[in-house]
Design a protein around this nucleic acid. Structure first.
Length: 486
RNA sequence: GAGCCGUUAGCUCAGGCUGGUAGAGCAUCUGCCUUUUAAGCAGAGGGUCGCAGGUUCGAGUCCUGCACGGCUCACCA
């Protein structure tokens, strides 16, 4: 037998039907929403409210209920907020009060009609003249005071989390706002938003394990994209000089507080710009988003105080590793690899990887305020333009913030011959067991038609949202993070 | 993949070290209650203690395995 609480409610549904009441009607049209009523009428004095004859109808879910003998208080919540309702016998009559007390439960949706008054404690409340059951809920809501805490239930049944934990809803509203602000900022600067394929014949643009899938009619294996990069650059070749894409990307790797198998990335490309121009652009973009969202450029993240005031610090990757670890880093492979191995870094004899990992484990982890780290080794940057003065490094930077990487950007490599050599070099690394960028002949073909000098950047949107909402885990900013089936 | 921690009523949690047939608050049901807001008072019902084995006269409690989740590390952007 099922839970008694559910049984009771199913019984109520039966009884309602037997007396000719539809427990799931669809003909109630609210005239107002909660915030509309509260914000407008909170400006009136108590006396003025008494004299207002306005009537309102509102709809929402009952989230709290306090019943008395001849009256009832409750709160309903709609998309905008919550408001108290008051039902009393001498206003609404015996029959309706009894119906309410018998059939209406916490969790149900109801529509109410009435006018406003203020209670003794000053809470603006709807004096209910009439109500209607809109949707019967068969399950009880989680506990009113502690909310829903169980992390597994929160993720598996996010709707319960959203109903009972207002701060969770707040985080997701902020997420939506952040994404909108990114679009606003870029649209304003003449960037065009585009959509490129998610099903890729070659999983390019990054080094990661892809998800595989299969197309029946074409009889071919496809991969879910690990990055939109190579398609966006094809569009640059096609004349879209300023493009961006904001969307889902997939990587078939471990899950953690920083990684979800599908995540949201924003990539942008701007022709006739350099990676240094993009430092300025990203500074402006993230400051715009932060300040508009939070009203300030300073915020707490976990135990850190982050200050985003411009200009942001810019440090050279190799110079900072040299000064931390030792000058020999560059002159002696032996020293470099020994040092990396001692820190447990699996570099597989790739110099660039060892250097970048050394940086991440030492200096990168300590960075709190936003810092551009520039000058990445060429062997870990196969899509980035070689530096004109030093062919061992590329014109690439990453943005570090609160100990994490938030953005990756570079002047794009637009020399097709060099690009081909870089891909071939990657295949070398692949034979050492590394995950690498795959050869993409079709992309090289696009470059052969000429891509104007361009700089591009990618921002991990989930991680940015984590920072701006002080969320310790990526699962707190993704509605339905992936879990094993129960 | 490894280590640690967790899983007890619809929800939030005690109990576990030291084995003796399961407890609280909220929610539900009954009664009283017309300005409450974690309403109040009185009473009642509600449990495969994650699953499967083992030890024991007896297991929520001890042991082993498994599942799911969390954190850390590894791997990986």
């Amino acid at each position: 037998m099922e839970n008694e609480l559910v049984e009771q409610r199913k019984q109520k549904v039966k009884e309602l039907r037997s007396i000719g009441v539809n427990p799931f009607p669809n003909d109630f049209k609210p005239s107002h929403d909660v915030v509309g009523v509260l914000s407008y009428y909170s400006s009136f004095s108590d006396e003025e409210i008494k004299n207002l004859s306005d009537k309102f109808s509102l709809a929402g879910r009952i989230i709290a209920l306090r019943e008395f003998g001849k009256s009832t208080f409750f709160h309903i919540m709609d998309r905008t907020g919550k408001i108290q309702g008051y039902i009393r016998r001498d206003v609404i009559g015996d029959e309706k009060l009894n119906f309410f007390k018998k059939f209406i439960d916490i969790g149900d949706f109801i529509g109410i009609r009435g006018d406003l008054f203020k209670t003794k404690t000053g809470e603006l409340t709807i004096n209910v003249k009439d109500f209607k059951l809109i949707t019967k809920s068969l399950y009880p809501l989680p506990e009113k005071w502690h909310g829903l805490k169980d992390v597994e239930t929160r993720y598996r049944q996010r709707y319960l989390d959203l109903i009972s934990n207002p701060e969770v809803k707040e985080i997701f509203l902020k997420r939506t706002k952040i994404i909108k602000l990114i679009r606003d900022f870029l649209n304003e600067r003449d960037f065009i938003e585009v959509e490129t394929p998610i099903l890729h014949p070659i999983a390019g643009g990054a080094a990661a394990k892809p998800f595989k899938t299969y197309h029946n009619a074409l009889d071919m294996e496809l991969f879910l994209r690990i990055a939109p990069e190579l398609y966006l650059k094809r569009l640059v070749v096609g004349g879209f000089e300023r493009v961006y894409e904001l969307g889902r990307t997939f990587r078939n790797e471990g899950v953690s507080t920083q990684h979800n198998p599908e995540f949201t990335i924003m990539e942008l490309y701007q022709s006739y710009a350099t990676y240094e121009d993009l430092m300025d652009l990203i500074e402006e973009l993230i400051c715009f988003v932060t300040e508009t969202l939070l009203g300030a450029l300073e915020f707490d993240y976990e135990d850190m105080k982050v200050n985003m005031k411009r200009p942001w610090r810019r440090i050279n990757l190799i110079e900072s590793v040299k000064s931390r670890i030792g000058e020999e880093i560059l002159s002696s492979d032996e020293f470099l690899f020994k040092k990396a191995t001692s820190l447990g870094i699996a570099h597989k004899g790739i110099r660039g990887k060892a250097i970048v990992e050394l940086f991440e484990r030492t200096i990168g982890d300590e960075i709190v305020d936003p810092t551009f780290v520039y000058g990445f080794p060429i062997d870990v940057s196969p899509l980035a333009r070689k530096n004109d003065l030093n062919p061992e490094i590329t014109d690439r930077f990453e943005l570090y913030l609160a100990g994490r990487e938030v953005a990756n950007a570079f002047s794009e490599l637009n020399d097709p011959v060099d690009q081909k050599e870089r891909f071939l070099k990657q295949l070398d690394f692949k034979s050492k067991g590394e995950e690498v960028h795959e050869m993409d002949e079709d992309f090289i073909g696009a470059l052969e038609h000429g891509m104007p000098p361009t700089a591009g950047a990618g921002i991990g949107v989930d991680r940015l949202v984590m920072l701006l909402t002080n969320s310790p885990s990526i699962r707190e900013v993704i509605f339905f993070p992936h879990l094993r089936p129960e």
